[in-house]
Simulated assay, not measured.
Amino acid sequence: MSSIEAAKPRKEISPLLKMVLELGPLVVFFFANARGEWLGAHFPALTELGGPIFIATGLFMAATALALTVSWIFTRTLPIMPLISGIVVFIFGALTLYLQNDTFIKMKPTIVNSLFGVILLGGLLFGKSLLGYVFHSAFRLDEAGWRKLTIRWGIFFVFLAIMNEVVWRNFSTDFWVAFKVWGTMPITVLFTLSQMPLIMKHSLDQEADA
């Protein structure tokens, strides 16, 4: 019986639910920061966390935990990138709340994106296109395609890390929060869509159809 269950394909969640799980915590973070004083007035317990950015950080951590839990319930697995990002959220979020210093939560995107960039680009030095291990269930590409896509994503993650550093160090907290949600996500979506020609060119499925 166990062997039959093991042979079953991994459960997939709907694209809409996946988007909600990925974007939900960020949206919670944005609105909690924007409405922090209102939340504190209506839910006095939240004021124990501190000002709006600290209330937003606490709710961001809770929303991230909820998103990972729902993902596990539906798929019985946790995607590696959201998992790593979630771990960093919990660590840096806890430091932010404990030390009452929002620098830690502001540096979280820098740490996560730098980590992903270094892992992807570093893997290529050892002849490993690690992006293939992440997206193998979504795309089937030839070796050259995975290598090119890994290089592009590695550089893009480094770009996101640098961009986060520039924004949080030179602009207000409210601007950084807004940019994190309404700037970084559209940029990431546009970058992802821009890779479709490369994916189509190196798709093994396309070659099989030909």
Results as ranks from 00 to 15, higher is better:
residue 1 M to H: 14
residue 2 S to L: 13
residue 3 S to T: 14
residue 6 A to R: 10
residue 6 A to N: 14
residue 8 K to L: 15
residue 9 P to F: 00
residue 9 P to A: 07
residue 14 S to C: 05
residue 14 S to Q: 09
residue 15 P to T: 11
residue 18 K to L: 12
residue 18 K to I: 03
residue 19 M to A: 15
residue 19 M to N: 15
residue 22 E to R: 04
residue 22 E to H: 07
residue 23 L to M: 12
residue 24 G to A: 11
residue 24 G to K: 08
residue 25 P to A: 11
residue 27 V to K: 13
residue 29 F to D: 14
residue 31 F to P: 10
residue 32 A to V: 05
residue 32 A to P: 07
residue 32 A to Q: 07
residue 36 G to P: 03
residue 37 E to K: 05
residue 39 L to S: 02
residue 39 L to A: 05
residue 41 A to G: 04
residue 45 A to W: 02
residue 45 A to R: 02
residue 49 L to R: 00
residue 52 P to H: 03
residue 56 A to T: 10
residue 56 A to P: 05
residue 57 T to M: 07
residue 58 G to Q: 03
residue 58 G to I: 05
residue 62 A to C: 09
residue 64 T to I: 10
residue 65 A to T: 09
residue 67 A to Y: 01
residue 71 S to G: 15
residue 71 S to R: 12
residue 72 W to V: 09
residue 73 I to T: 14
residue 74 F to P: 08
residue 75 T to I: 06
residue 75 T to E: 15
residue 75 T to W: 02
residue 77 T to W: 03
residue 78 L to P: 08
residue 78 L to C: 12
residue 79 P to Y: 01
residue 79 P to K: 04
residue 83 L to N: 03
residue 85 S to L: 01
residue 85 S to R: 00
residue 86 G to Q: 08
residue 87 I to E: 09
residue 90 F to L: 12
residue 91 I to C: 10
residue 92 F to C: 02
residue 95 L to N: 05
residue 97 L to G: 01
residue 97 L to P: 01
residue 98 Y to G: 03
residue 99 L to F: 01
residue 100 Q to A: 06
residue 100 Q to L: 02
residue 107 M to L: 07
residue 109 P to V: 01
residue 112 V to F: 01
residue 112 V to C: 04
residue 116 F to P: 03
residue 116 F to R: 00
residue 118 V to F: 04
residue 119 I to N: 02
residue 120 L to P: 08
residue 124 L to D: 13
residue 125 L to A: 08
residue 126 F to Y: 10
residue 126 F to H: 08
residue 126 F to T: 13
residue 127 G to S: 09
residue 128 K to G: 11
residue 129 S to H: 11
residue 129 S to Y: 06
residue 131 L to S: 06
residue 133 Y to I: 05
residue 134 V to Y: 01
residue 136 H to G: 10
residue 138 A to Y: 01
residue 139 F to Q: 13
residue 141 L to Q: 07
residue 141 L to V: 07
residue 142 D to F: 00
residue 142 D to G: 07
residue 145 G to F: 00
residue 145 G to T: 12
residue 147 R to V: 11
residue 148 K to G: 10
residue 150 T to F: 00
residue 151 I to H: 11
residue 153 W to R: 03
residue 154 G to R: 02
residue 155 I to A: 14
residue 155 I to H: 08
residue 156 F to L: 10
residue 157 F to N: 14
residue 161 A to Q: 06
residue 163 M to R: 13
residue 164 N to A: 04
residue 164 N to W: 00
residue 170 N to H: 07
residue 170 N to M: 04
residue 172 S to V: 07
residue 174 D to C: 02
residue 174 D to A: 10
residue 176 W to F: 09
residue 180 K to N: 12
residue 182 W to V: 05
residue 185 M to F: 11
residue 185 M to S: 13
residue 186 P to R: 13
residue 187 I to T: 13
residue 190 L to P: 05
residue 192 T to C: 02
residue 196 M to L: 11
residue 196 M to P: 03
residue 199 I to D: 05
residue 200 M to G: 10
residue 201 K to L: 08
residue 203 S to H: 00
residue 205 D to Q: 06
residue 205 D to C: 00
residue 207 E to M: 10
